[in-house]
Amino acid sequence: KVLVLALYDYQEKSPREVTMKKGDILTLLNSTNKDWWKVEVNGRQGFVPAAYVKVL
């Protein structure tokens, strides 16, 4: 399983997205889209901007 680090806070803007806080460790589920990556955080799955996270 691939983990990513949240570099910035992100507030979800649609039901398909998830909120994350800077420093959160998320599970990367899909990174085929260069702009939006699907992650799991706190038991929820959704998209975050790829530029806001870094693969650990």
Rank of each mutant, 00 (worst) to 15 (best):
T27C: 08
W37Y: 11
P15E: 12
D35F: 15
K38D: 04
G46E: 02
L29W: 07
L3N: 07
K21H: 11
V39M: 02
V55G: 04
D9S: 10
D35K: 13
V55Y: 11
I25Y: 06
S31H: 13
V48N: 00
V4L: 14
A50P: 05
A51C: 10
Y52K: 06
K22G: 06
L29S: 04
W36R: 03
V55H: 07
V4K: 01
K21A: 10
D24R: 03
V18G: 02
I25L: 09
L56E: 05
S31Y: 11
V53Q: 00
V18E: 01
F47V: 07
L3M: 14
M20D: 00
I25V: 13
L26R: 01
L28M: 05
Y10F: 09
V55K: 08
Y8D: 10
P15I: 09
Y52I: 06
T32N: 14
A50W: 02
E12M: 12
P15K: 09
L7D: 02
V2G: 10
K13I: 11
L26W: 02
A50I: 03
M20W: 01
G46C: 03
W37V: 09
M20G: 00
T32I: 11
L26A: 11
V18Y: 05
W36P: 00
E12W: 06
V48R: 00
I25Q: 06
L29A: 03
W36C: 05
V53R: 00
W36N: 02
K22T: 09
V39S: 00
Q11I: 14
A6P: 01
N33L: 10
L29G: 02
E40Y: 11
L7A: 04
W37N: 01
L29C: 06
Y8R: 12
T32D: 15
K34D: 11
Y10R: 03
T19I: 03
R16L: 14
V48H: 00
Q45W: 09
L28Q: 01
A51R: 13
G23L: 03
V18M: 15
R44W: 04
G46V: 03
E12N: 12
Y52D: 04
G23T: 02
A51N: 12
D35L: 13
V55P: 10
N30Y: 11
V48W: 00
E17G: 11
T19D: 04
T32Q: 14
V4Q: 01
I25A: 04
E12V: 06
G43K: 08
E17V: 06
P15Y: 12
F47E: 05
Q11M: 14
K21Q: 10
L26Q: 01
G23A: 03
I25D: 01
L3R: 09
D9F: 04
L5V: 12
N30R: 08
S31V: 08
F47T: 03
K34E: 09
V39T: 02
K54Q: 13
Q11C: 07
V53C: 09
W37M: 05
E17Q: 11
G23E: 02
K22R: 12
V48Q: 00
T19N: 07
L7F: 03
D9A: 10
T27D: 07
K1F: 14
W37S: 03
P15S: 15
T19Y: 04
G43N: 08
L5H: 05
G23Q: 02
I25S: 03
V41F: 13
K38N: 08
N30Q: 13
V4Y: 09
G23M: 04
K22V: 10
N42K: 11
S14N: 13
K13H: 14
Y8V: 12
N30G: 07
L28F: 03
T19P: 07
E12T: 10
K38F: 14
Q45L: 10
V53F: 06
W36M: 07
Y8A: 12
D35A: 12
W36L: 04
V2K: 09
F47Y: 12
V4M: 07
E17L: 06
A6Y: 01
V2A: 10
R44V: 12
R16A: 14
A51M: 14
N30A: 11
V53S: 01
E40R: 07
Y10C: 01
R16V: 14
E17F: 08
T27L: 12
L56P: 03
I25P: 02
Y8L: 12
K54E: 08
A50G: 05
D9G: 06
P15V: 12
L28D: 00
A51P: 11
Q11E: 15
E17I: 04
P49G: 01
Y52R: 05
K13R: 14
K13E: 12
V2Q: 09
N42V: 08
V2F: 10
V18T: 09
K1Q: 14
E40C: 11
L7P: 00
T27S: 10
D24C: 05
N30I: 09
T27H: 09
M20H: 01
Y52E: 02
K21T: 11
N42W: 11
Y10M: 01
V41N: 10
I25K: 06
T19L: 03
N33T: 07
K21M: 11
A50D: 01
V53G: 02
A6T: 04
T19H: 04
Y10K: 01
K34W: 08
G46Y: 03
V55N: 06
A51E: 08
K1A: 15
K13Q: 15
L56A: 05
P49I: 02
V18L: 15
G43C: 10
L5E: 11
K54T: 14
V41I: 15
V48T: 02
K54I: 14
F47I: 08
A6D: 00
K54G: 10
P49D: 01
K34R: 08
W36V: 03
N33F: 10
L28C: 05
V41C: 08
Q45A: 13
L7I: 11
K38M: 15
Y8F: 13
L7W: 04
T19W: 04
V53I: 10
L7K: 05
G23W: 06
G43W: 05
V39C: 06
K22I: 08
V48I: 12
S31G: 12
T27A: 08
G23K: 02
A6H: 00
V18W: 05
V2I: 13
